[in-house]
Design a protein around this nucleic acid. Structure first.
Lengths: 120, 120, 120, 120
DNA sequence: GTGGTCTAGACCACA
DNA sequence: GTGGTCTAGACCACG
C-alpha cells in the first residue's frame, strides 16, 4: 500500500480515507487480513496510535473489524467502504459550494468557475 | 452588517472573510470607519479578542488600518480586498480538487460531478 | 461530579457512562458547559487523553459537543443521553442472559436465580 | 463436542467454560480421555495454542489432568467442574448487578427489569 | 486556559 | 507478534 499523507493536516482521517479507498478499489479483498497496526504505522511513517485510532474509526463505519491478538480484517460487505467514499465526495462538494456561496458566488457562478478551472 | 458564523468552525477566519466580502461588495467604502471592535463583537456574538485578531490580520493584508484612539478604517485601495477574495476562491477550489483527486477522481470526473450537482 | 472508577477495567467507557448518567439525572443541564478536559481528568484521576477520547465518543453519540478554545457543552436534546443509558442496560442484560444461556441455564432458571440473589 | 465460539471475545475462557460445562453435564465421564489438543483445536476452529492454554487452566482448576505422551483426561472428582460453573454463574450475576448499580438501578429495580425481560 | 492532534513508550491479554 | 488501553508530554489554533 502506497501512502500520500499531508503532515500539515490531521493524519487520522487521511489514513481512514486511503484505507477506505484501497478497499473500495479492491486492493484489499473482503475478509482479507490488513497489515498490522505497527506495520502500517511504520509504512506510513506515523505513530502506531494514529493508525490504531483510524482503524477503530473504520470499525465503527463497518469497514474493518479486529480480532484480538490476530489482526485487523476487511469486512465481508465492502459496500460500506464504497458508500463512505461516496459520502465523502458529497460532503466535500457540499462544503465547497457552501463555502463559495458564503463568498457571494451562486451555484451557477461556481459551476462556471469549476468548468474553466486549470484549463489554461 | 449581517453575520452568519458557523460556531463549529474557527471564527477568526470567518470574520476576516465576511469583512473582506463586505468591503469588496461596497458595503463599506474606502476610508470609511468600521464599527468598533467591541460593537462588532457584540453584533457578531463573539469574543472581542477574536474580532481584534481578525482586524489585525486584515491590517496585514492591507485591507484595514487602525488609528490609535480612533478606530479601524477601510484602506483607500480596496483592490486588495477583492484580490484576497479571489485568492480565497482559488484556494478553496484548489483544495477541493486536490481532495477529490486523492479519492481517485480525476479533474474531468470532478467537473462532471460538479456540473450535475444539486440539479435534480 | 463524583467519580467511581474501576482501574482494572477500561476507563474510557466508564467515563462515558458516568457522564451520560450525570446528564440523564440532570446534574448537567442542556447547553451547560462541562468541566474542561484537563479539569475532569484531574478530578477523576486519569489522563486527559482518556477524558478527551470519552468526550469524543459522547460527541458521536450526540450527547456532548465541543467548541474549540471554549470547552465542551451538553447538547440541547438530552433524550440521547437517556436513550444511551437505556441501551446500555438492555445490552448488559442481554449479554448476561446469553452468557448464562451458554452455561445451560434457560431464561426461567436465570430469572429464578436473579430473584433469589443476595437475599440471605 | 459442539462448539459455539464468539470470535469477538477471548477464546481461551470460552473454551474453558464449554469444556467445563460438557464435563458437568456428563458428556465426558470422570477418568475419560479428552480429544487431543490438536483435534479439539481443529474441531473448534481455533489455534492449538489456545486449546493448550485452556486445558492448562483447567488443570489448575483440578478439572483435567495431563499424562505425558498420552493426552488429557477428566479428573475423577467432577464436583470441581460443577463448582467452577456455579462460581461462573455467581460471578457473572454479581458483575451484572454491580454494572447496573453503577447505572443508578438498585437491586429491586434490576430484579423487576429482569423479571419482565423478553416477555412481550 | 481550552480543545485537537500527534508522538513516544509502556503494559496487558491473547494467538 | 498483535490489538487494546493508558500515561506522559508536546505543539497548535483559538478565545
Amino acid at each position: 500500500m502506497k501512502w500520500t499523507l499531508d503532515k500539515a493536516k490531521p493524519l487520522c482521517p487521511q489514513i481512514c480515507e486511503q484505507v477506505c479507498l484501497s478497499i473500495a478499489l479492491g486492493e484489499f479483498k473482503p475478509g482479507e487480513k490488513m497489515f498490522s497496526v505497527r506495520e502500517t504505522a511504520l509504512n506510513a511513517g506515523v505513530n502506531p496510535n494514529t493508525v490504531q485510532k483510524a482503524f477503530e474509526q473504520l470499525e465503527i463505519d463497518g469497514i474493518l473489524y479486529s480480532v484480538r491478538g490476530s489482526g485487523w480484517f476487511v469486512c465481508e460487505d465492502i459496500s460500506k467502504a464504497k458508500e463512505t467514499l461516496d459520502n465523502l465526495v458529497a460532503e466535500k462538494t457540499e462544503a465547497f459550494f457552501s463555502a463559495l456561496n458564503a463568498l457571494s458566488m451562486d451555484n451557477e457562478a461556481i459551476k462556471k468557475y469549476v468548468k474553466e478551472w486549470d484549463n489554461e
